[in-house]
Nucleic acid binder design. Structure first.
Lengths: 233, 233
DNA sequence: CTCTCCTACAGGCTAGGCCACTGAACCTGT
DNA sequence: ACAGGTTCAGTGGCCTAGCCTGTAGGAGAG
C-alpha cells in the first residue's frame, strides 16, 4: 500500500511478499465461497494457475495459513479448512487495519495481572534470581541515564517465565508482536523510570513471598501507572 | 509425540513435514548459538546446504518462523531475529507437547473472566439478544438429547463479542480450537449440559444487569465447573 | 575527504520434474 | 454375492536450476 502511494517517513518501507498477498486472497476466497470446516480448498496446481503464481510460492502461503491455524494440509488429500470463515475473517481484519492501542493495553493487563499471581504461586528460586537480575539491570540502566527499557523487558519476561504457563506466554508473545507493529514508542518522561522501577520492586517482593493476591494487585497498579501516560512499559 | 512412541489408536497419524522439522532445528540453533534480537541468520543457500534441504523447503520454514514472529526476513539483507531465544524456546516447547489441557484451561479462564466483566460493562442490546439466542439454542439442543455444544460455542462467542475488545477476541480465536476441545469433553458427561446451561444463565443475567463483578465471578465458577471434569479426564 | 557507482551476495520467485500418499474404481478368488 | 487385493488418477512433498530484484560495502572519481 504505502509502497505504491509514496515513501514512508520512518522505518524501512514495507516489503511486499507475494505469499502474504496470497494469504489475504485465500482468506477472502474462503469467506466469499462460504467454505465450512472440513471443506477442501482447490488443488495446489489449480490454485497456483488461477492466482498466477508458482506452486512453490503458493506452498509458502499454505504454510502460513497452516501456522495461523486456518487450514490443515493433508498429503494426498488436500488442504482442509479447520475453522469457520468468521475466524478467518477476524484474522484477516486484524492484519489489515492493526488493532488499537487501548485494546492491546487491555489485553496485556489482563494477562499480566494473572501471570503475576501465578508467578507468586509457582516461582522457583531460579525464577526469582532472574527477576532480581532484571531489576539490577534496570537499576543500572537508569543510573546511566537510560530509561531502562531493556531491564524492563527482562523483568516482564522473567515474571512471565516464572508463571510457568506456556499458553499464556505465547499469548504475551503475540501481544508483543502487535505492540511492535503499531510502532509504539514509549515516551521517556522524567521520573517515570524510577516510578516504574519502584513498582517493579513491589511486584518482585510479592512474588518472593509467594503472595498471589498482592502480586496481582501490584501488577495492576504498575500497569495503571504506566498506561497512564506512556501507555506501555 | 505418539508418532514416535507407537501407532495412534484413533485419528490419522502425524504427517511429518520437512519444514516443521526445520523450524524445530532452527529454533534450537537460535537458542544454542545464543543469537540476540537483531542478529542475522546464516544465508539461505548456506542454511539449505547445511541442513540438507532445498532452498524452496527452507523458504517454507522461514515463512513459518516469520508468521510465528520469530524472525523478520528482509530482501537483500537476510533473516533477522526479532525476539530473544527464550521466547523462541517457549514457542518450541509449546509446539512439542502440543496444547496441554491445564495450560489451556488456565489461559481460557483468564481471558474469559475478564471478557465477562467487560461484556457486563459494554454490552449493547444487540449483544444481549445474541446471548439470549445462544442460550435458547443450547436449551433446544439439550432438550433434543444433544450435548448442546453448538449453543455453548455460540454463547461464548456472544459474550466475547459483547466485550468489544478486538485484541482479546483475537487471543480467544488463537486458542479457540483447543478451547472447543475442552468444552466438548466436559459436556459429554451426563448431567453436565444442564449444569453448564444453568451457569450460562447466571453469566447472562449478570451481563444483563451490567454487574461486572458478578459476571466475572459467574464466569469463574462456570470455568471451574467445566475444567473440573476435563481435568479428571 | 566525500560522493558516486559498481558489484558480490542476499532473498524472491518461477519452471518443471519426480516421488509418496490417498481413495475409489476395479478386478479376482472364494 | 462378497471380501480381499490391485490399479490408477489425482493430490501434496520436495528437489534442481535458474533468473530476477534489493542491499550494502568497497573501489574509484572528484
Amino acid at each position: 500500500m504505502t509502497d505504491a502511494t509514496g515513501p514512508q517517513l520512518l522505518g524501512r518501507l514495507a516489503r511486499p511478499r507475494l505469499y502474504e498477498q496470497l494469504v489475504e486472497q485465500l482468506l477472502g476466497y474462503i469467506e466469499s465461497a462460504k467454505l465450512r470446516p472440513g471443506d477442501l480448498l482447490p488443488a495446489e496446481r489449480e490454485l497456483a494457475e488461477r492466482l498466477g503464481v508458482s506452486r512453490a510460492t503458493l506452498a509458502q502461503a499454505l504454510v502460513a495459513l497452516e501456522v495461523l491455524g486456518v487450514i490443515d494440509v493433508q498429503h494426498g488429500t488436500g488442504a482442509v479448512l479447520r475453522h469457520r470463515a468468521s475466524v478467518a475473517s477476524v484474522i484477516k481484519g486484524l492484519r489489515e487495519h492493526r488493532s488499537r492501542l487501548p485494546d492491546i493495553v487491555e489485553a496485556r493487563s489482563t494477562l499480566e495481572v494473572r501471570l503475576a499471581a501465578l508467578a507468586a504461586e509457582r516461582r522457583t528460586d531460579e525464577d526469582l534470581t532472574a527477576i532480581d537480575q532484571a531489576l539490577e539491570t534496570m537499576q543500572a540502566e537508569i543510573d546511566d541515564g537510560d530509561r531502562g527499557a531493556h531491564g524492563d523487558e527482562l523483568f516482564h519476561q522473567a515474571v512471565t517465565g516464572a508463571a510457568h504457563s506456556p499458553v499464556m506466554a505465547q499469548l504475551m508473545a503475540f501481544i508483543g508482536e502487535m505492540v511492535l507493529e503499531t510502532r509504539l514508542e514509549s515516551l521517556a518522561q522524567p521520573g517515570r523510570p524510577e516510578q516504574s522501577l519502584t513498582s517493579h520492586r513491589d511486584i518482585a517482593e510479592a512474588i518472593r513471598v509467594q503472595d498471589a493476591t498482592a502480586a496481582a494487585a501490584a501488577m495492576q497498579r504498575h500497569i495503571e501507572l504506566v498506561s497512564d501516560v506512556a501507555l506501555l512499559e
